[in-house]
Amino acid sequence: MASHFQQTDSTRANELLADVLETPFEDDAEDFHFALREGDLELDGDFVLEANEVLIVVGNLTVKGCLSDAFQNEDDASKLYVLGDLRARDLVCGSEVRVTGNLTVENVLYANSFDMDTLGVGGKLSARVFIEEGHQVEFKSLAVDTLITDDESWREVVPEAVVGDFASVLPAHLLGQEGQFILSEALHRDLLAGRPVLR
């Protein structure tokens, strides 16, 4: 990260994110490590955020591999803010990610934070496969080929969504307790290895 971002602080973060944050960062936010990239950034491989890392990109961010944030618990999570467009091959989203432009995921977008955090997209959210399992998701428009979720209300947005029947679309090694939930670490490993996740 050091070669692509410069360290910053909560004051600068609040200035840049005034239109994005619901609640500004406190002045004594020493638990967070703030880093800033001014200008577009393109990364060739996978990119993983660390716990308590707050990354701000003032421009477009492109990750040619799998982009994944950090979520261990409510107190140890990362935050990513892209003031532009975000494009990734795959995205594993377990904490707060906000994109002011469009979010384009070429392959699989997996979002799960136990309903604690938000994936917010100011423009169009598009993905070949979108797996939502307990995450707040906001967008202006949505374009997904396959939506897999545990929330029946998604049918109002995507009538053909696969709701709860994970075993019909995902292989057994990605599922726990008789197909009742998704094993996020196993899914992440498959995405990092470039393996398909649909049956």
Rank of each mutant, 00 (worst) to 15 (best):
R89V: 11
R89E: 15
R89W: 01
D90F: 00
D90Q: 11
D90K: 06
D90C: 07
V92W: 04
V92E: 08
V92K: 05
C93M: 05
G94S: 00
G94A: 06
S95Y: 05
S95D: 01
E96P: 11
V97N: 03
V97E: 04
R98G: 14
R98E: 12
V99C: 08
T100P: 04
N102M: 13
N102H: 14
N102L: 12
N102S: 12
L103M: 12
L103T: 04
L103E: 07
T104F: 15
T104C: 11
V105M: 01
V105N: 03
E106T: 09
E106K: 14
E106P: 10
E106I: 14
V108M: 01
V108C: 05
V108Q: 04
L109C: 09
Y110L: 07
Y110I: 10
A111Y: 01
N112I: 10
S113A: 09
M116D: 13
M116G: 03
D117V: 09
D117T: 13
D117S: 11
T118F: 07
T118C: 10
L119V: 05
G120R: 15
G120F: 06
G120K: 15
V121Y: 11
V121S: 09
G122Y: 12
G123N: 10
G123D: 03
G123E: 01
K124I: 15
K124F: 13
K124C: 11
L125E: 09
L125S: 07
L125Y: 04
S126Q: 11
R128E: 12
V129S: 03
V129E: 04
F130Q: 01
I131W: 05
I131C: 04
E132F: 02
E133K: 07
G134M: 07
G134D: 01
G134A: 08
H135I: 07
Q136D: 15
Q136K: 11
V137S: 08
V137K: 05
V137M: 10
E138C: 14
E138A: 14
E138S: 11
E138Y: 00
F139G: 03
K140T: 15
K140H: 11
S141T: 07
V144D: 02
V144F: 00
D145P: 03
T146C: 08
L147R: 01
I148T: 05
T149Y: 04
T149K: 13
D150E: 08
D150V: 04
E152D: 14
E152K: 03
S153V: 08
W154E: 01
R155S: 03
R155P: 02
E156D: 09
E156N: 15
V157I: 13
V157H: 14
V158R: 00
V158Y: 05
